[in-house]
């Protein structure tokens, strides 16, 4: 049998670890934000080549999977909503339901989750490997701040690319929804568009895109942070990759809930 004191000690250890993690995350966020600010003030010092490279890997390379996931999401959402609301004869509300749900929530969220799987994990793995091969130490002893060198280009790339991916995801998602409307209800495109325009305010679209900017920040931050926190053994990179994805998705969903409330409050003021 285990000594009960051991469990208490374990709990204490875990609490200390958690505290360490939180402190490290906060200082990392501070470090990266300072580096981002420095990048804004001295754009010449941004590593443009890396920036373009990551733009490419985060953006165009992610388009096929984004399109696939978003289209299917739109189809599934529209189909499920159609089955329910058809019972009440509320077919005319469907384009609004589909539009609002995709533009405000599912579009940004699904694209962010896909990007976490693709880019967040890649960032963690890349930086983790660099840590193990002492490349981070090399940077540091060269007098180069690793956050500026490694995180800032990724961050800018993600901040630019994820909203664009979200726009594509939104569009494809709504197109998927329209396909269901067309095949199940025979709704013509102009009617679908008109009903969508009627129910979906442009602010919802902007809301989704703004959310995706926040998600891009979270994905890059978590991915890189996990990379920097990689241990030194062989399986550490795998572990930090997994944990980057899990942590990042957790943060994204939490932030999403918070933002949903925030935007609702904001709309409350705006009407």
């Amino acid at each position: 049998m285990k000594n009960p004191a051991d469990s208490i000690i374990q709990c204490g250890d875990m609490a200390f670890q958690l505290k360490d993690e939180v402190v490290s995350l906060i200082s990392f966020v501070g470090d990266v934000t300072a580096a981002l600010w420095e990048g804004i003030r001295h754009p010449k010092r941004l590593r443009w080549k890396d920036f373009l490279f990551y733009m490419n890997t985060c953006g165009p390379d992610g388009v096929p999977i984004t399109i696939m996931i978003s289209a299917l999401m739109g189809v599934v959402l529209a189909y499920q909503a159609e089955v329910q609301s058809h019972k009440y004869g509320a077919d005319n509300f469907l384009p609004m339901v589909i539009g609002c749900t995709i533009l405000r929530e599912l579009g940004p969220l699904m694209v962010a989750i896909v990007a976490t799987g693709r880019s967040g994990s890649a960032f963690a793995a890349e930086i983790g490997t660099m840590k193990i091969s002492e490349e981070l130490d090399a940077l540091r002893t060269m007098g180069i701040r690793p956050t500026r060198f490694l995180v800032v280009p990724k961050m800018w790339a993600m901040l630019f690319m994820l909203p664009l991916l979200t726009v594509i995801g939104d569009f494809v998602g709504c197109a998927g929804g329209y396909m269901v409307m067309r095949s199940e209800l025979g709704m013509p495109l102009d009617v679908f568009l008109r009903l969508t325009r009627q129910g979906v305010a442009v602010k919802y679209f902007i809301e989704g895109v703004l959310k995706s900017v926040v998600f891009a920040y979270i994905i890059t931050m978590t991915g890189c942070w996990r990379g920097f926190r990689t241990g030194s053994d062989a399986i550490a990179v795998g572990r930090s990759t997994t944990s980057a994805v899990v942590t990042s998705i957790l943060f994204i969903v939490l932030t999403d809930a918070f933002l949903a409330k925030l935007f609702t409050v904001f709309y409350g003021w705006q009407g």
Binding site: L164, V167, I168, F171, L193, R197, Y204
Partner: peptide, 19 residues
């Protein structure tokens, strides 16, 4: 990359316009 940025931006503005 260029194609992606142009297309996505176009969709963005189209959405703004439509909505």
């Amino acid at each position: 990359l260029g194609l992606f940025i142009i297309l996505a931006t176009a969709v963005f503005f189209a959405a703004l316009f439509i909505l």
